[in-house]
Write a protein that binds this DNA or RNA. Structure first.
Length: 881
RNA sequence: GGGCGGUUAACUCAGCAGGUAGAGUGUCAUCGUGACAUGGUGAAAGUCGUAGGUUCGAGUCCUAUACCGCCCACCA
């Protein structure tokens, strides 16, 4: 057995092998099982052509922890993986690829381009999945889904049609955000506003047939080419007399009216606003109110179109420059001021977006948002941490219609057909033979595809087979928890909730666990452009997946960003090594027969009861923490138990029995050692699945895989309060002695006789039982217990404990001066404690109002410290004589 | 213009039912002992951003305030 475990933990030796073992044996596969309760998590699908970054590593680790834990708790646990076609970003990559080959999208045509895109998808589509496997994700690969799969595409089509038929999807001319680089419309959520230092230009618009003029202010002077009016506030005395008159639009020589509209803020700028209905959402509304019509002056690449007069063909910023120059030259430019404002950028490519009017498809949001909001307000939808609920609600309260059509080819094509003869619109599951209105067979399908998020919004049920009423859907839906980053609440979480309510009649998950961002060690966002990203795979390669996983979930709270430090990964790798070697120790000292027998809890010694009791408590607390999604706390408790209690104390305490003579005590020690180790492996397994499984397989008596074993439960019969008290007393005694010796610079190999002086019967018994602990752990060569200290000379170290005093006669090694110094320090410390306790107790309010238990505790402490101080003083006195 | 988070040991962070402040790393001292030097043992190190308040008692609750950061928002 032993020869199978190398001396040093080396994760590379087994991580891949263990993963294959689980996967090949179908341990990740979830089954519809009416005898079990389902527990379901849908993996947020990463981009199909993406690669693993720390954000993925973090949220997939969390999901894996939850799913492994629930699986062990006996649930039929489904973690469904998949990938997203990521329309814009994948299309952009493919465009780049073919560009490097000297081709364009248009040249290839739709079909040719899609073939390229599929090739690309097939080439890179498995990359991220293989990377996830390195992390140890225990998801059910037999249920792997892709948003462009036939089934999911069918779901998309179905939802589109249902919403259309309900009047919740419509087509219309509206102001949308246009990305001139991606050449598509994007939704509001896909626009990032960035504060930018810019200018505001004040421009004169002369009144027709008059010397008068109006000065307007604008931050986008090029849009003046499309101006169709100038608006002032109806109550504005400065301009009242001009309302209804006509202006001559500079440079264009177009006549435009002066209109009155309450939208105008009198105080801002000059109080007069140019109205460009085709290129500004507010102006659009004003235009509608006043019947101004439209004048589009920009083409899809962001250049000025044929409506822009002499500026036609100029790129938008070129045009701006030229227009400002011309205005200045012709005396229309009044002044240019600095002006900071938020400029919208395309979330994908960072190009400044242009608001412009366009015929697009929209989802009417109000009716869908309402129940989604109610679900939260009723408390059915729970956010971790809760503060994000407000973010969610706030977005829904101010929601606007969702532009879902994209001028892209990679994605779900709209199931919409038009008649070339009568312009009839037909929304249909299959291509209609004839126009339903005029009977013409000259039909064509809409060229556009849907927003990527339209399909991911259906993820919680489309992946389970919806619209078919599958067994999986019935059993696993709704899911239990969604784990994702707080940055996609709007894009995804909100949309899943309302889609699910609309199609399934219930919310898709009860809990939303939001992770923060993983930043670099200087707190910067990891990004490709900065080149500061840390590749999870490199970390795994160097330290192992378990160390990485542990690092990501400890010392970190939900929703808070974290900094990534390699030193922490190393520390966690060391922890794994610690466990590895503790296991080696156990195996080295295990008799063949012991492992075969059932653990019996008879014949336990004090430290056995103590460690079992501690384990029991840890099981309880860790489970409670996990129940509350306190993953970091749970992991921390397992860590502390393994290192501090099991390794540092229990193993050390038990050594004398293991090395001692054959017998019941030795056997029991082995049994408890093994029992605790097995339980600890279970507790740690969700967090560090590889090392725990690997060790588990080396332990005797384990028939099934750890991944399938049962989660430990708290057992009242293993709660040993008395033993805990006794061992804790002994621990504090050992610590006291070690401490005193270290302060006196006595090297551990120098052993001393230890004499305990106590009159307390209980302590005497504990000490008597605990002799061997002192012998082994406190450099003692012999122990004597006395009722008084008569005859004990001054050449001793005195360690004052609760109700007991330890003397270490070390003859030549004791420096009296130093011992006095040490005791003086001890004295000060005790005096401080007494003062604090006395202060509390002399506070009338405390004695009267604090819980009785606390008051009693405080009194006991005071008494204890006073007794200890008394002994220290006695000792000092005798040394000074 | 709204909303939110952070501010705790040299560094990074825990501390979620208010009751004498914790971890990892780093630092100092010490130890090649038969699980582990990816280790053991011991130590030093914090007026818990600031100012008020509630309370017998506040890192923890309330109110202000400062700095750092994030999100939302159609003032041209």
């Amino acid at each position: 057995m032993l020869e199978n475990l190398p001396k040093t933990y080396n994760p590379k030796d087994f991580e891949d092998r263990i993963y294959k073992y689980w996967n090949d044996n179908g341990h990740f596969v979830a089954h519809v099982d009416e005898n079990k309760k389902p527990f379901t998590i849908m993996m947020p699908p990463p981009n199909v052509t993406g690669s693993l970054h720390m954000g993925h590593a973090l949220n997939n680790t969390i999901q894996d922890i939850l799913i492994r834990w629930k699986r062990m708790e006996g649930y039929s646990a489904l973690w469904l993986p998949g990938t997203d076609h990521a329309s814009i970003s994948t299309e952009a990559r493919v465009v780049n690829k073919i560009k490097s080959e000297g081709k364009t999208k248009e040249e290839l045509g739709r079909e040719g381009f899609l073939k390229e895109a599929w090739d690309w998808t097939h080439k890179y589509g498995s990359t991220i999945k293989n990377q996830l496997k390195k992390l140890g994700v225990s998801c059910d690969w037999t249920r792997d889904r892709f948003t462009l799969d036939e089934g999911l595409s069918k779901a998309v089509e179905e939802v589109f049609i249902r919403l259309y038929e309900k009047g919740l999807i419509y087509r219309g001319d509206r102001i949308i955000n246009w990305c001139p680089s991606c050449k598509t419309a994007i939704s509001d959520a896909e626009v990032e506003h960035e504060d930018t230092k810019g200018n505001i230009w004040h421009i004169k618009y002369p009144v027709k047939d008059s010397e008068e003029y109006i000065v307007i202010a604008t931050t986008r002077p090029e849009t003046m080419l499309g101006d169709l009016a100038v608006a002032v506030h109806p109550e504005d005395d400065r301009y009242k007399n001009l309302i209804g008159k006509t202006l001559i639009l500079p440079l264009m020589d177009r006549e435009i009216p002066i209109i009155a509209d309450e939208y105008v803020e009198m105080e801002f700028g000059t109080g007069a606003v140019k109205i460009t209905p085709s290129h500004d959402p507010n102006d659009f509304e004003v235009g509608e109110r006043h019947g101004l019509g439209q004048c589009i002056i920009m083409s899809e690449d962001g250049s000025i179109n044929e409506n822009g007069g002499v500026y036609a063909g100029l790129e938008r910023y070129e045009a701006r420059k030229k227009i400002v120059e011309d205005l200045r030259e012709k005396g229309y430019l009044v002044e240019v001021k600095d002006h900071d404002h938020a400029v919208g950028h395309c979330e994908r490519c960072s190009t400044v977006v242009e608001p412009l009017i366009s015929k697009q498809w929209f989802v009417k949001m109000e009716p869908l948002a309402k129940p989604a909001l109610e679900a939260y307000e009723k408390g059915d939808l729970n956010f971790i941490p809760p503060r994000f609920g407000k973010v969610y609600a706030n977005w829904l309260e101010n929601i606007r219609d969702w532009c879902i059509s994209r001028q892209l080819w990679w994605g779900h094509r709209l199931p919409v057909y038009y008649c070339n003869d009568c312009d009839e619109i037909m929304v249909s599951r299959t291509r209609p033979e004839k126009c339903t209105k005029c009977g013409s067979s000259d039909l064509y399908q809409d060229e556009d595809t849907l927003d990527t998020w339209f399909s991911s919004a259906l993820w919680p049920f489309s992946t389970l087979g919806w619209p078919e009423n599958t067994e999986d859907l019935q059993y696993f839906f709704p899911t239990d928890v969604l784990v994702t980053g707080y940055d996609i609440i709007f894009f995804w979480v909100v949309r899943m909730v309302f889609s699910s309510i609309e199609q399934m009649g219930e919310i898709p998950f009860k809990d939303v666990f939001l992770t923060g961002l993983v930043r670099d060690s200087e707190g910067r966002k990891m990004s490709k452009s900065l080149g500061n990203g840390i590749d999870p795979l490199e970390v795994i390669d160097e330290y192992g997946a378990d160390a990485l996983r542990f690092t990501l979930v400890t010392g970190n709270t939900p929703g808070n960003d974290m900094r990534f430090y390699m030193e922490r990964v190393e520390a966690n790798r060391n922890f794994a090594n610690k466990l590895w070697n503790a296991t080696r120790f156990v195996l080295m000292n295990l008799d063949e027969d012991v492992s075969k027998e059932q653990v019996s809890f008879d014949n336990l010694e004090e430290e056995d009861r103590w460690i079992l009791s501690k384990l029991n408590k840890t099981i309880k607390e860790v489970t409670e923490n996990l129940d509350k999604y306190e993953i970091g706390l749970a992991a921390g408790k397992v860590y502390d138990f393994i290192w501090d209690e099991y390794c540092d104390w229990y193993i050390e305490m038990v050594k004398s029995r293991l090395y001692g003579e054959e017998g019941l005590s030795k056997k029991t020690a082995q049994k408890v050692l093994l029992y605790v180790l097995k339980n600890v492996l279970k507790l740690l397994h969700p967090f560090m699945p590889f090392i725990t499984e690997e060790i588990w397989q080396h332990l005797p008596g384990n028939e099934e895989a750890l991944i399938l074993s049962s989660w430990p439960v708290y057992k009242e019969e293993l709660n040993f309060q008395e033993s805990e008290r006794a061992i804790e007393f002994i621990k504090s005694g050992i610590k006291g002695i070690r401490n005193a010796r270290a302060e006196m610079n006595i090297i551990p190999s120098k052993k001393s006789k230890q004499i305990f002086v106590t009159a307390d019967e209980e302590i005497k018994e504990i000490l008597n039982k605990g002799k061997r602990y002192f012998l082994n752990l406190a450099s003692a060569e012999d122990i004597e217990i006395r009722e008084n200290k008569e005859g004990l000379g001054d050449d001793n170290i005195s360690v004052v404990l609760d109700k007991c005093e330890a003397y270490l006669p070390l003859k030549d090694l004791i420096d009296i001066e130093k011992e006095i110094e040490r005791l003086e320090k001890e004295k000060e410390k005790l005096e401080g404690e007494i003062k604090r306790a006395a202060g509390k107790l002399s506070n009338e309010g405390f004695v009267k109002k604090a819980p009785e238990k606390l008051v009693l505790e405080e009194q006991e402490k005071k008494k204890k410290y006073e007794e200890m101080l008394e002994k220290v003083l006695e000792r000092l006195e005798s040394l000074r004589k």
